[in-house]
Design a protein around this nucleic acid. Sequence first.
RNA 1: CGGGGCGUAGCGAAGCUUGGCAUCGCGCGUGCUUUGGGAGCACGAGAUCGUGGGUUCGAAUCCCGCCGCCCCGACCA
Length: 590
Amino acid sequence: MRLSELFFATLRDDPADAEMPSHRLLLRAGYLRQLGSGLYSLLPLGFRVNKRVEQVIREEMNAIGCQELEMPVIHPADLWRESGRYDLIGPEMARFKDRGDRDMVIAMTHEEVVTDLLRDIIRSYRQLPVRLYHFQTKFRDEPRSRGGLIRVREFVMKDSYSCDRDDEGLDASYWAHHGAYVRIFERLGLEAIPVASDVGMMGGSLAHEFMVLNPAGEDVLVLCDACGFSANRQVASVKVPLVDLGPALPVEEIETPDTTTIADLAAFLGVDATRTAKAAFFMAGDGRLVTAIVRGDRDVNETKLSNVAKVSGGLRPATVDEIHAAGMEPGYGSAVGAHDTFVVVDEIAAASPNLVAGANRVGYHLRNVNLGRDFQADLVADIDNAREGDACPVCGHPVILRNGIEVGNIFKLGTRYSAALGATYLGEDGQAHPIVMGSYGIGLGRNVACIVEAHHDEKGIAWPDEVAPYPAHLVSIGTNKEPRVGELAKELHDGAAAAGREILWDDRDDSPGVKFNDAELLGMPWIITVSPRSLAAGGVEVTRRATGQRSVMPLDDARAWLTGSGPAPHLTEPASVASQAASESAGTRS
RNA sequence: CGGGGCGUAGCGAAGCUUGGCAUCGCGCGUGCUUUGGGAGCACGAGAUCGUGGGUUCGAAUCCCGCCGCCCCGACCA
């Protein structure tokens, strides 16, 4: 591909709206253009990267016996009504009516459609297991897109679905995907950590997310250096030491002026925050006031709370009026004497006797409050929010917290959809059984962005070989001085293309500085320079983009390499200090 | 949806406080020179200043509404 003919444009200045390196570089290097919030066009270069990522995924999916198919982007709303998600999902799903006034939706995922196919096609246990996947556009009207391709509204996802007879089969499918995902991310050059995760809107029983560490990540991971434990904070249960405060003592009301925070209260009374109880109030989408009680030194994890309280429609902070209506007082609140509220007590607080809790009266708290005697819980559960330094649940070593970007996820759905839609098979026992399903996703664009996040330096992108849009970037210099340069560049370019291994050739009439800078910005793994100087040195100069290592390659070797009949350059020269630093910052960022 | 910021040529910005000819750099076109690290000179094209209304003799600038984009939060596979 001649650069002079490529549909692209590089930008010398950073785009004002791009903050993340991947966003900035993909725009600057001409891989991407924005159409609207969370809507991007892939230019030819970006499209090629996407296709290469897709191919890696396709190969690994095929390798575990997944069959590729394609399902529509537009679905009849009735199908989503059958699963119950039509009403469950809010404005995130786009809805419209077709010309026949029928309700339709734009797909945000494909569980419903694949289950519809299953109930049509699967009759007998003999047809199971089956694993299906496709690459298809999803539209999710996110409240807020961000970070270029990191979070968008329209994107292509590889989603696969496993269909088994029983939990044992599902387990095999699940771990087959787990293995395939490990291989996929390794091939893509991503250090993805599988973490136990929340099942979210998908429903189901077990889920892992594959996370790439990144300061701009939207998820918080709880990690243990010592034993390798990893979990999303939304599900992480760390070990928190309990404080034994002895047998229950009588309740005592005490005056505690101006102590609306735990810090103020603990300071005022001269007690540790671990000896207090904290109340947090939420209004659920289903209309319930949810009161969460945690030990004073801990915080509520809203995802956990939402899950254990089986909240539909989400949680929001309650208003003062709503709290008053349940007989409680913000700042001096507790579940003591509360009514018309769903009380969830964290396990740590539940195991802590004689806590200082709010008296539900401005300026007063209660000493020696005990669960069961002084207030009741509708539910005792883990709603604790893990913190850096807490003890690892596996080995007890202090955990660390890191931000991560989710590059893939795997879910055990079970019979959530097959039961709702009536996708059953006849078992050996002659009875109908719901198909046991799993669902597995990888967002292509987000992975492309994460690859750039992990493989770039201050000059630009440095694609791993596996996903680079072209294997090499040929720079011809000094064609005016030496006609052989242009002839040779054309020969190398045309030869590679004829061999089906197209390379990029910067044939533009620009100065060497412009060409080198663009080559480094675009990020092909190899930069090949043809110039009078390289010819005098005996061939072409080859530079490894990621490390800056370079050497001269004889012409015949270069021809052989580029046409696929010879090996890639072997670089013996050590990388310079500067380029080593560059490659380190590029390679270890993840 | 709450908080903050920003919309001026393809990109990046100045001008706005204090109303008075639409600016700068890069990029782009033509010509000549130049060609191993973002070249030089000359000429040139390109902007209804996001949008609608208002105030005013006069609005990029002041006032009101709307739209769009980015960041933080809420939310979220």
